[in-house]
Design a protein around this nucleic acid. Structure first.
Lengths: 199, 199
DNA sequence: TCGATGATTTACACTGTGTAAAGCAAGCTA
DNA sequence: TAGCTTGCTTTACACAGTGTAAATCATCGA
């Protein structure tokens, strides 16, 4: 960590640096060099340091930047508005695959840096806790609809849903095994529906 | 990559370096320094380079070293010998949690390095393919027992089982949410049993 | 015209990786 | 016992990438 976000400099320059960083993270991964960022953004390397303090400050700002452009509220509401458990689970998995698709490169870098960089680790865990809460609310909704199978507590079902929808699982299926988004949604929904919902 | 494994030097020294590397990976993660490895092993930094070529050669050797000490054949046979699908899934999840427990620190480092380091990435993917095959054989066994639910193909069920049993999911549940191994085995087994097995 | 701001240029310190070369101790072999 | 090989040490250095510092410059508003 270092300078507080947004404190210094021309907002446009700042945004431009972040945009370039996003691009570079997307294809170079965590091995991006600050000199490269600066070059592609058309500023000096030192400008980057002035804006973001250090490497991890830059990545951190990128995470915040993405948060804003994502705006999950609406999508979550749509999931919660599902008329029944099965539909809710399907919408949840659809949102999940869209989410991971959107942030994939950053997720990769953050998962990797999580244990080496305290600030980045905290930022990542923070967002994951939001995810947990979101999935918790979904399961609560299923329970309210009286469709959660008797075998499950809300806590266990929430945690499991959260964990099973996590990045690795999604990446192995869609990235490594070449499943399409639809295939992912369909299979995951089937898995969860049979398990979590009352017959 | 660099020198071929096992080509150079005193095997005892080699083993000692690997043992120390394992320790360091376990508590420093991927931020281990070769100088630290050398110091703790009681050899010069250059000895490490002579034995393993470079950083990624050392990590690679560590992976091979662990393979030997793990010997999964017997455990896999025990899973396959389960009398029915439910028991098989439980044994699979038990083995899974034991496996991740055993290699957790290395898994962390390799998952992180996977996309930055070609050699390490290949080594990791190689092992993950073995996992895939193992889970594939398990599902095939369930199918042979006529206990795979009609909704599932062997391929889809295998892939999903593999993906759902992956590292992230396990780590989130046991590491972040503080589930015990037993809790993990129980909940995952319940999830999979209800989904994959015929009623 | 003054002064603040945003950024540039240049320079340098530091860390960690990787390479190169000379030397040294022990053991085998002729 | 001389000579060679092997395994390692010591020293030295090149290089990349991060991070810091200071002087300078251009622009813009008061």
């Amino acid at each position: 960590m270092s300078t507080d976000a947004g404190a210094y400099g021309d907002p446009e320059t700042r945004t431009r640096i972040l945009a370039v960083t996003w691009e570079l993270v997307a294809d170079r991964g965590s091995s991006l060099k600050l000199s490269e960022v600066a070059e592609r953004a058309g500023v000096s390397r030192q400008a980057v340091y002035l804006h973001f303090g250090d490497r991890s400050g830059l990545l951190l700002a990128l995470v915040h930047h993405m948060d804003e452009s994502l705006d999950l509220g609406e999508s979550l509401a749509h999931v919660q508005a599902a008329p029944n458990g099965a539909e809710l689970l399907e919408r949840a998995m659809r949102l999940n695959t869209d989410f991971w698709n959107a942030i994939q490169p950053v997720a990769q870098v953050l998962e990797a840096a999580q244990h080496d960089d305290e600030a980045l680790g905290a930022a990542w865990r923070d967002r994951m806790e939001l995810r947990q809460m979101a999935f918790g609310m979904m399961i609560q909704r299923v329970a309210d609809l009286r469709q959660l199978a008797a075998e499950w507590t809300v806590e266990d079902a929430s945690a499991l849903l959260y964990a099973v929808a996590h990045f690795d699982t999604w990446r192995e299926l869609t990235g490594q095994l070449d499943w399409t988004d639809d295939h992912y949604v369909e299979a995951m929904t089937r898995l969860l529906r049979r398990s979590l919902l009352a017959a």
